[in-house]
């Protein structure tokens, strides 16, 4: 294993921030795995740390395939994580909205550039990303419909679902999008946690990445190869919103099967304790996402459901 500092940012008030890469094997730049770009993406760093640990063991056993190299970058934003902030520590900008970066630009553009110039020639790019709302997902590979996405390859992660959605204007400055433009096959992997550590879903994500690397002939590794992934398009999901604000009492969890009319959640008046709204499932299906805030605004999407034709 080689530890390499990819980028360093000086500060008068703090130790320099370093973006570190951990490199395994030699030769072709085969796969790059990036963890946290935001300061609250603790689970993402944890997953990377597990990968570094396992890849180091595999390298010692000679199981990184000849002529292949893998780099893991656990964190791009340690400054923010160390002070408990999601976005950049001083100006609150989002590094994952600054790609491909600019070496003469503003601070977070320079950080993005410092990472991107080190990772833009990898064949495969994997990012552990997070959603802007608190919530849990079924672990999945997320892709943008750029025309460059490779759905069949995404299924090699063996996660239950590959989720594809349309590109929005702000997506064009993300790492994933720019990887694709630079001809890296890029994937975002989501688990059910961000600012907490869930060791079970982290292990699932680690296994998915190792399974993917094995199928691409980058490592030798016998593992459970996971699921035959199902593709879901963004427009296929059924969004369930609340029209009412209050306490959000969840009655259905991620990955649970629900029938039309089943109770998904109750909205409770915070002062009287009365149930003021009951959120019912509009379809038969599987809970793909649920919000996790204890109190919610009106118009908040609470659930996203994969509709199914279950007649059971």
């Amino acid at each position: 294993m080689e530890e390499k500092t990819l980028f360093e940012l000086s500060s008068v008030y703090r130790k320099n921030m370093r973006i570190k890469g951990y490199i395994f094997g030699n030769g072709e730049h085969s796969a790059c795995i990036v963890g946290a770009t935001r300061g609250n993406e603790v689970q993402q760093v944890y997953i990377c740390s597990r990968l570094v640990n396992i890849l180091e063991q595999l390298e010692r056993k000679g199981k990184i395939c000849s002529g292949k190299s893998i780099m893991v970058v656990p964190s791009v934003n340690s400054y923010s994580m160390n002070i408990g902030k999601r976005f950049w520590s001083t100006d609150n900008t989002d590094i994952n909205r600054m790609f491909p970066g600019y070496d003469l630009g503003e601070t977070t553009q320079r950080i993005a550039d410092g990472l991107f110039r080190n990772v833009n020639d990898y064949k495969y790019g994997i990012q552990f990303a997070s959603f802007y709302m608190q919530g849990s997902f079924i672990p999945h590979v997320r892709m943008m419909k750029t025309g460059l996405e490779d759905i069949e390859l995404a299924k090699d992660f063996g996660l239950p679902y590959v989720f594809r959605r349309d590109v929005r204007p702000y997506d064009t400055t993300t790492l994933n999008y720019n990887w694709q433009i630079w001809e890296t096959k890029a994937f975002s992997v989501y688990t059910d946690a961000t600012d907490t550590i869930n060791t079970d879903t982290a292990a699932e994500a680690v296994n998915a990445v190792l399974s993917f690397l094995k199928k691409q002939g980058i490592i030798e590794y016998n593992c459970h190869e996971g699921y035959i992934s199902k593709l879901i398009e963004g427009h296929e999901l059924v969004n369930v919103k609340t029209g009412t604000a209050g306490f959000f009492i969840r009655r259905a969890e991620v990955n649970s099967r629900v029938n039309q009319g089943d109770l998904l959640a109750e909205i409770v008046d915070p002062y009287s304790g009365r149930t003021i709204d009951k959120i019912l499932s509009p379809v038969n299906g599987i809970v793909f996402f649920h919000a996790a805030q204890p109190v919610i605004y009106a118009h908040t999407p609470l659930y996203r459901i994969i509709p199914t034709d279950d007649l059971i």
């Binding site: 209050g246 915070p270 109190v295 605004y297 009106a298 118009h299």
Partner: peptide
């Protein structure tokens, strides 16, 4: 107008 959780409307 959007309801906020505790006794307020945005």
């Amino acid at each position: 107008a959007i309801g906020l959780p505790i006794d307020e409307t945005l």
